[in-house]
Computed example of a mutant assay.
Amino acid sequence: MATNHEPAAAGSTAPAVDPKDASTVILVRDGQSGELEVFLLRRVAGMAFAGGMTVFPGGGVDPSDEDANIGWSGPPVSWWARRFSTDAARAKALVCAAVRETFEECGVLLAGPTADSVVADTARYARARTRLEQRELSFGEFLESERLVLRTDLLRPWANWITPVGEGRRYDTRFFVAAAPDGQVADGATSEAEEVRWQTPAAAIAHWRDGASVLLPPTWTQLSRLAGFGTVAEVLAAEPDIPQILPTLVGEGKGLRVEFPDQEEYYAARPHPWSKRSGDV
């Protein structure tokens, strides 16, 4: 994880803000046309972080995510720690946050009454979902009260991006992929989303290229990678390397530009009038 010893952005003398842990889940499904689709939401404009941007469900790790005493089905915490190059406590918190945030933001719950089952309909948990989002209820308390087991085997590790040094809000984000469970409906019933939709990765990129949405570099990169897969099964079978990617901010005119791996197509596709705020990743 990045530390406060990182250098500040070019031209800045302020110490770097320590990034907070976060988890993001890329929900995928096989669409009716037979093509791979991903679930995207447009965040409410004016939010402190990534307002108005089109993103995958996700958010910051809560302290209770690490402390949760829950049923766990799937790869052990030690496996997740190795894949994300971190310690066991943080790995557990990241996985719990991934499932919790996905449930809060779109109603999809990667859990079931047994180690080999998954909830078919999450409507009965609507009240608990609201309480989770408002931090009136911890995820561990919710799972325990409903006698549910966390299905970590439905998730796959995918990527790790850190917000550039120089931003006021920074996150060390682990990306996961997961297949949307049969019978569950991903929705936009959250205070953080203005719009949600399922799209093929190619269509989402075309939508962005036409100026109809704003994709931050990590989101664009994951969509570009997923465009190379045809089905959910292919995505879940992948075992990608997960390097830690830390973009940098560089001055460009009166604003700042985000530099990141394989960025040429991103900047060639359409102009990006980045300011310090819109450069958040």
Rank of each mutant, 00 (worst) to 15 (best):
R131E: 15
A212W: 04
L27F: 14
D87S: 14
P273M: 03
W79N: 06
D182Y: 12
E6S: 15
Q263H: 08
R129L: 10
A204Y: 02
R277Q: 08
V77I: 10
R174E: 00
D241T: 11
G71D: 08
A115F: 03
W220I: 04
D210A: 14
L132A: 11
V44H: 03
L40V: 01
L137N: 14
R42W: 02
A97Y: 12
A237R: 09
P247D: 02
R151V: 12
E259M: 07
R170C: 06
W79T: 09
T219Y: 06
L132P: 14
R42V: 07
V108K: 00
A179V: 06
L41I: 03
F260I: 04
A97H: 13
L110T: 02
A48E: 03
I242D: 12
P19Q: 04
A179H: 04
W79V: 11
L110F: 10
T163F: 12
V177Y: 03
G11D: 06
A186Q: 09
E195D: 12
L36N: 11
A111Y: 04
T54G: 00
T130L: 15
M1Q: 09
E195G: 05
V177K: 02
F56A: 01
A203I: 02
N69K: 13
M47P: 00
E234V: 13
M1I: 05
V44P: 00
L246P: 01
A212V: 00
